[in-house]
Simulated scan of single mutants.
Amino acid sequence: MKPWNLCFALALLVLATAWGGAAAPAASPALTVYLVRHAEKELAPGLSDPPLTAAGQARAQALVGALRRAHPAVLFTTNTQRTRATLAPLATATGLAPRPYNAQQPQALADTLRRAYAGRAVVVVGHSNTLLPLLAALGAPAPVPEIPDDEYSYLFEVRVPAQGPATVRVRHYGAR
């Protein structure tokens, strides 16, 4: 082989190795957020912080089954009796202590979730008027225009990738 052919072949080998041999950076795993509204609450007039009804307690138990395979890293709840009670059976089953969050600051929670829990699953219990703003803060489209006062069965599974748009899968849990 002539010297210039050998140089040309070596150059091609070096270029092929540089282009084909470099591993692409690994994609960051997606954050998965499970959003649920608190379960059925007592509707007696005058209660500023109503407890769950018997149906609500049954739904809270059903949440454990619905999220059994999710293996959440953390549980978040607002500071109301009904949200804490909705999350209590799951907290017991996972051994995780629920952490409070301010539902009036959805962007702050969304930023914390992206930063601290990428690649993991998180459960957030909120209210009919706070879940859709949190979905928006996570960059996910609203799958429903509103959550009616008598609707407690929604379980939104939100996938938030490091790059690109978030997606929402609508599920239901407990009795409809």
Score class of each variant (00 low, 15 high):
Ala140Pro: 14
Leu113Ala: 04
Arg114Thr: 00
Gly139Trp: 14
Asn102Lys: 01
Ala136Trp: 09
Ala88Arg: 03
Leu135Ser: 09
Tyr101Gly: 00
Ala136Thr: 15
Ala116Cys: 07
Pro106Tyr: 06
Ala166Met: 08
Thr94Met: 08
Pro148Glu: 14
Gly95Glu: 05
Asp150Gly: 06
Gln163Thr: 13
Pro148Cys: 05
Glu151Asn: 08
Thr94Tyr: 05
Ser153Glu: 14
Glu157Arg: 14
Ala137Tyr: 15
His127Glu: 12
Gly95Ser: 08
Val124Thr: 02
Pro100Thr: 00
Gly95Asp: 05
Tyr117Ala: 03
Val123Tyr: 12
Gly164Met: 09
Ser153Met: 01
Leu90Gly: 02
Ile147Pro: 06
Asp111Leu: 12
Val160Pro: 01
Pro143Lys: 06
Arg115Gln: 13
Val144Ile: 15
Thr94Ala: 05
Ala121Gln: 09
Pro143Ala: 10
Leu155Pro: 00
Ala166Arg: 04
Val158Gln: 03
Tyr101Trp: 06
Arg120Ala: 08
Leu113Gly: 03
Gly119Ile: 10
Gln104Ala: 15
Val160Tyr: 11
Val158Gly: 03
Gln163Lys: 12
Asn129Val: 07
Ala88Gln: 13
Gln105Pro: 02
Val124Tyr: 05
Leu90Pro: 01
Pro148Gly: 10
Pro148Leu: 14
Gly126Phe: 10
Val124Gly: 01
Gly95Ile: 08
